[in-house]
Design a protein around this nucleic acid. Structure first.
Lengths: 232, 232
DNA sequence: CGACGCATTGACAGGGCTCAATTTAAGTGG
DNA sequence: CCACTTAAATTGAGCCCTGTCAATGCGTCG
């Protein structure tokens, strides 16, 4: 039996195991396969045959979709505790996105049969998976609306706030985004360009709302960003 | 017992009942509450307390999200057979979208308890719900990418093709969209404006690719639209 | 320390939104 | 069945936001 000590936190907090008796966790985890992903490496490619779905144990992954001519949209940043690629189990197709590690990361993967067995033994498992899916749908809908009706600077502000809430860490200066994120990343996340993002961050830097450097952003004044993203 | 005859088709085709023994359908349907929605009426409002989820039995619904100042984004058009508002059951929150009938429509709704009972009795039910959720996620991701990287006319072309595949009916002239859809609708669906949509459709009309009138669109040459949406 | 990748900034242009004025078509009621 | 009302669609003019291109600066890592 091997619940790796260092993940007990992620595991106990993950919605995937909500309402599942702790003594069954070991069994569930044993049926999956753990995998280490180095910084910048890819866990799976968009278009590859989808054979397993994953729980992120450590680190962060960027889920993105490509569009000819080097254009890319970042669909989601996922944290430890999240389930990804459920499509592999329930639609048996190809991965619709690419998953790339933002830093060193680890994940545990189950193939279709394992998940199906788990569901039939622990009915709650399917419900927990549904909760993840529904959360994803809601976030996508919200971001779709933003992309459809708001202009760029607002979208960037909202993106920053969303990422801050999910992956921010308090420091002396303010709240720092815990992973490396470039102007290009933010552009791909907001449906913009690295130039516009750069200009915008630069502007906010001058106003003292944020501090930013190479692949690093600290939010000094979240409130200013919130009101900027909301006021008329 | 009452499986309404006229819906047996929708029911037997709906993914919701895949792999569920037919003799259990009557039981499942009996636990829901049927509801008629007149053309243009609203089944539920964004922000209302979400108390039940629905299977669309007949007609079509438009799921949209509002954004101050009268702006609106159409998140999805759903057909008979689709499940909506699963959020009501699995997150017990508020509806994230508004559902409006595009013509006369009918739906059957189950509250949280009913769905939970059904899942515990028919484990397959949860899996089927997951499939719906995953389909939605994939479509949203794809449209998010489009909105992020493609320009308006292409998005309109793709939207038309997507709607055509889902709700098109062959006629003498070509493939007609089966429900009333205005320029404004198409604009809200593609993140554009009714003016741009009007100009674009007008242009395509002159080229003979489509024919369009008041809330009515017939696609004469789908292939032209496909290549327009794909070429360089 | 050099080189590469990321970020900044300016100049420019154009896609698409906005606003306004008509035109067309669908209902509606007498 | 026609006049009237109202909502949808069309079209033009103007301009602004933001993408594009190019040049330069800077920080980090090998």
């Amino acid at each position: 039996m091997n619940i790796p000590e260092q993940y007990s936190d992620t595991i106990s907090r993950s919605e995937l195991f909500a309402d599942i008796p702790p003594d069954m966790l070991a069994d569930i985890l044993d049926r999956g396969r753990r995998q280490h992903i180095k910084a910048g490496e890819i866990l799976f490619h968009e278009g590859d045959h989808a054979d397993r779905c994953y729980l992120v144990l450590k680190g962060r992954l960027k889920l993105s979709k490509l569009h000819g001519q080097g254009k890319e949209a970042i669909i989601h940043y996922v944290e430890a505790g999240a389930v990804i690629a459920a499509v592999a189990v329930f639609k048996g197709k190809r991965f619709p996105v690419t998953a790339r590690a933002m830093g060193a990361a680890e994940a545990i993967g189950w193939d279709r049969d394992a998940i199906m067995e788990l569901i039939s033994e622990y009915a709650q498992f399917a419900i927990n998976l549904l909760r993840f899916a529904i959360d994803r749908i809601e976030e996508l809908q919200t971001r779709y609306l933003e992309l459809a009706v708001e202009q760029v600077e607002r979208r960037i502000a909202r993106a920053l706030l969303r990422i801050m809430r999910q992956s921010g860490r308090k420091t002396g200066e303010g709240i720092e985004i815990e992973f490396k994120i470039s102007r290009q990343d933010l552009a791909d996340y907001t449906g913009s360009t690295l130039y516009t993002v750069s200009r915008t961050l630069s502007n906010w830097g001058k106003r003292g709302w944020i501090k930013s450097g190479r692949q690093r952003i600290v939010i000094i004044n979240p409130h200013a960003l919130v009101s900027f993203s909301e006021t008329d």
